[in-house]
Design a protein around this nucleic acid. Structure first.
Lengths: 230, 230
DNA sequence: TCCTTGTCAAGAGCACTGCTCTCGATTTTA
DNA sequence: TAAAATCGAGAGCAGTGCTCTTGACAAGGA
């Protein structure tokens, strides 16, 4: 990490990390929107203007935090998928559980990436790749399950039409060989998954399915079956 | 509306509406978080402090806007469901389309109610009832379809266990007689629906399923089939 | 009709925010 | 060693939510 380079560059890298750490700390207690550069600089014992040498604007700091959050979530999914499972269904369920677990542990960071976009904030291209890590994990499970002959749809899923075939072709690059009918259902399951997590975290389930443990378990199982993982 | 009452009270009611209208206007262009009381008062030609006579705090204004947004969305769903359909599936699809339509037309108001909760803002009890309008519409369609014998699950959906039975009992009050297995799937479809809308609006689909028209249509159809509306 | 009471907009002011610019001091590079 | 790049500190600007006081006005009872 600190390979060679001048003392200045090492100090800069360290301080950059310290700023992000303080920002994350503040993010956890307050909210995403009330993240204050001045409060961070105060916590770090420096003057607010000095902070702009490391992050040109508040949005740049947010972008860094967003990328870190995507990476952390992707990492959680990947390490859950890395274990050995007898059946791909177990891998699917484990990843789903890990995603929810991470979201519940870091609600504000989850809201940062899957909540409403920050006002006047445009997500830069750099966030696209880390954002793709999580859905890629899900797709790989399905892809591998398909290759090993585990997938079996129990109803006659219709063949996608319209713009869907070419859109699914893009996704098929990650999961080669998987039929479009199944890929479409994976995307549906993906939206269901994060819709469910968001609803739980954002309080939409209060009064009905909250606490959502059993609901989450049942839903992930049924959606796994929905895509052919029985 | 303006029944009787003194001139003062009528003026107050009018100004309250004007403030909300200006806030909505500002909400549409800017974002939810950058909603400024001072900007509103400037637009209305009054001094900022005067605004506090109508809304004690920014949160109170937000609460009013949230309730209005829930009501507008609920209204969109209800009027879509009010038409005559030959088959409940058509009603389901119409309501789903109306929800997406409203969300795409009023993205910031949608984000206000289904996005990340405002930092330090606690949704008051008054928002619960208007928030329930939309899911109730969906449940009524399923309930009526069940009563008329339209519902038919094509796979062997498992019977809900754990805390689910008593949680689904609460929902069953709106859709009496509908089996728990189906109710659970309606909730799953509900989370899928709003997960999909949020993903489209918040830019999570860019690069893959965007534009999402065909995906939305296919997903709503498959989820309708998932709950037994064939 | 007068007059008290309650309501109202206005203005000043506080503490906070993101951000910019300048100024010396320090470090790196040539 | 000298030039160039980088750094933290400080002042300052324009904006924010919110509070408090002041004086004007309308409503309703005597």
């Amino acid at each position: 990490m600190n390979a060679g380079r001048t003392a200045r560059e090492r100090a800069r890298a360290e301080l950059t990390e310290e700023i992000k750490a303080a920002a994350r700390r503040q993010l956890a207690t307050e909210g995403a929107e009330s993240l204050s550069l001045r409060a961070i600089s105060r916590e770090l014992g420096m003057v607010s203007s000095a902070l702009y040498r490391y992050f040109p604007s508040r949005d740049d700091l947010l972008t860094a935090l967003i990328i870190d959050a995507y990476d952390a979530l992707g990492m959680a999914a990947e390490s859950a998928a890395a274990k050995d499972y007898e059946h791909p269904l177990q891998a699917w369920l484990a990843v789903c559980a890990a995603l929810r677990e991470w979201a519940r542990t870091n609600p504000h960071e989850y809201a940062l990436i899957y909540g409403s976009p920050i006002s006047g904030y445009q997500a830069p291209q750099a966030t696209v790749e880390p954002a793709a890590r999580t859905p890629i994990v899900l797709l790989r499970i399905v892809s591998q399950a398909h290759a090993e002959g585990w997938l079996k749809l129990l109803d006659d899923a219709p063949e996608p039409t319209g713009k869907l075939p070419e859109q699914l072709d893009v996704i098929a690059e990650i999961a080669p060989g998987v039929p479009h009918r199944i890929l479409l259902r994976v995307v549906i399951a993906w939206t269901q998954l994060f819709g469910m997590i968001s609803f739980e975290l954002f309080g939409q389930l209060v009064g009905t399915m909250d606490p959502a443990d059993d609901f989450y378990d049942a839903a992930t199982r049924q959606m796994a079956k929905f895509i052919g993982l029985s």
